[in-house]
Structure formats: structure tokens, C-alpha cells
Nucleic acid binder design. Sequence first.
DNA 1: AGACCATACCTCGCTGCCGAGGTATCTCGC
DNA 2: GCGAGATACCTCGGCAGCGAGGTATGGTCT
Lengths: 177, 177
Amino acid sequence: MFKLAILGFLHDRPLHGYELRRHLSALSGHVQPISDGTLYPAIKRLETAGLLVRQPEPGSAAAPRHTLHLTEAGRAALLDQLREPEQLDISDENRWFTLLAFLRHLDDPAAQAAVLRRRLAFLSEPASFFYDGDRPMGAEEFSDPFRRGQLLIARATTEAELGWLHATLAELEGGKE
Amino acid sequence: MFKLAILGFLHDRPLHGYELRRHLSALSGHVQPISDGTLYPAIKRLETAGLLVRQPEPGSAAAPRHTLHLTEAGRAALLDQLREPEQLDISDENRWFTLLAFLRHLDDPAAQAAVLRRRLAFLSEPASFFYDGDRPMGAEEFSDPFRRGQLLIARATTEAELGWLHATLAELEGGKE
DNA sequence: AGACCATACCTCGCTGCCGAGGTATCTCGC
DNA sequence: GCGAGATACCTCGGCAGCGAGGTATGGTCT
């Protein structure tokens, strides 16, 4: 989950753990703040995998800092995951937003458009939270105001995103014609 | 995560595992299908905790079914979690939607309104995914179309939900005056 | 009769995340 | 000069969810 975000932030510039945590907190911390017990093991995993290196920073700070630098393998892993994200990165809104935050790193409009098309396909599937047999039920079928709301909000979100997707795809794909 | 959903569905009527899985798949499976390795241990945990009982069903079906019945303790646990959800149930959209799906079980408009007010407070906090120092950055500040989109979609979602929240709160709280 | 699929349930080992706890340094106010 | 708080890093145990694998029965098609 955080792998993509860590690599994405480090792609912009090297950071040390504490700064990284602030960035991650901004990105997804409103929903769920990231804890040290998550962050540092995640960094260690990425280091072990050779995706980043930790360089001790001799400088001024309070505690012995380690600046984290993305390696070439790390950059490649980031671009890979952006180019061919797992289905969960497409379908889960939190993960999708994380992906969107770094999709600009994928320096190829056609590849970016391909990713947006996958999201478009996902959003275009007929889906509900509740089914009558195999038929997805609409908001209007519930007298329960909460399930109504759930469906109405989901519909509004989907429509907003579809609008943006179509506009952005037109830009990305129009550019190359 | 699935505890609430399992208890919520069983509150309506007893189900066996397979039916439960279909309901859960409808509710959150579009994003991430639930696997057997998640479902059955979760059922077992709830059984061990005394929140449900499994009754063997002598009937017709293919394999020896066990119908799951909510106990009184299970009903109490469900109502508890609906009445006083954890912060993560309020802030994470997937969890919030799960909560909404069953909030009608909380048979008390004032308690329902209190839960909606918590969501309202959460959505009213100024928040972004990116910050310039301490200042949340708006969509307009990004030339990157993906981060722009991310912020625009989030804003549209929030506004749709705020509209629904205000309307529903007016109904719930207006009723008692 | 045999192949095949849907139904129905269960276990195991792995991974990732979490909270709680710990260590150490620097700065700033009093 | 001393405590408080921010900075910065790390470890440990526990748990939830997952994929892969396994077992068995009933219906359906050929």
C-alpha cells in the first residue's frame, strides 16, 4: 500500500524518514494516519529489495538522519507499478488516488491514457452495493435514507470522475493526433 | 473490517456462509472481492466471541450447511459499533459506506443523527492531499492534470455528501421537534 | 457412466499494518 | 541549568486479510 507512495515521493527528491512521513500523512493521513511501526519497516523492506539506499546525513539535525535516495531499480519499480498497476490499485479509491498522485512520473501520455482507460472501464461496469438476485438496485428503491445516501453519493462521485476522465483522455490522446 | 458487515447482514436474517459471501461481495466486492480465507476465519472469530451461533442445517443442499444466527450479544455488539463507531469507520470511505449500509438498524433517530454529525465534522475539516508548508493546496495550483483531477473529484464527492448529510440531518432532527 | 461445474466449507503460511514501547539529540523558554 | 517538546529513528508482538490448497456433495450435460 505505501510502497507506491514512498517511491513516488522519493522520485521527486530524496527525503529522510520524518519528511516522508509528513508527505504520506498529507496524502492519506486524513483518512488514516501512518504510524512509525508501518513506515520504518516499509522503508527497510524497500531498502532490502534494493529500491532505495539510506545515506547517513552528517549535518545539523537533532538525531542522526538518514536521507533516502531512490535507486535506478527503485525508479524502474515505480514506473512499472504506474504503467501496469494491479487491479486493486484501479478499483480501491484510496489506492487509485495514490496512483493518480504520481501518474505524472510516467512520462508517456499514451501509457498514462491507458491507465485512465482501465479506471474508466472499471467505473463503467454496472455496480451497486445491493442486488435483487442479479439485478443491481438503485437508490430510488430504498426507503432507508442511509442506503439511499450511500448510492446517491457513489453515483455523484462516479459521475464527477467520469467527466474528468473523458476530458483528460481527450487531452492526452488528442495531443498525439 | 468485515465484522460490522457480517453482523449487519445477519441482523436482517440468518444466512449460511455462502450466502453471506454473496452479500459481502455485493457490498464491497466491486472494490475487492472477499476471499474464503478471510470469511471463514472471521466467522469463527465471531462465533468464538459469542456473537453468533452456527446451526447445522439438515436440509437439501449440496454440502453440510451451517446457518449463522446472530445472538443477543451479537446484536448488542452491532448496535454498539453503529452507535459509537471508531474514527476509522468515520474517515475511511469504504468503512463509512459499510456503516451507512446498516445504520438503519440503529433504531433511534437521535443516535443516527449523532453518527452523521461525526461524518459531517470530519468532512468539514479543511484538508488536501498536498500541502505547501501548512497550507492545503487547491486543485488550481497544479498543472499536473492527475493531481488536479484527484482534488477535483474529492471536492465533488465531499460536496455531494455534504448536501445529503444536511438534508438527512434536517429530516432526522426535524422529526423530533 | 463419466466429466464437469457450482455449492459449501475449512486450513495453512505469508505479509503488511498497527499500537506500544524504547532511545537519543537539539532547541527554547523559564 | 533544567525540563518540555519537537525531531528522528527503531523493535516487538499481535492480528487481519490473502492466496493457494484441500475436501466433499449434488446437479447437468453428453
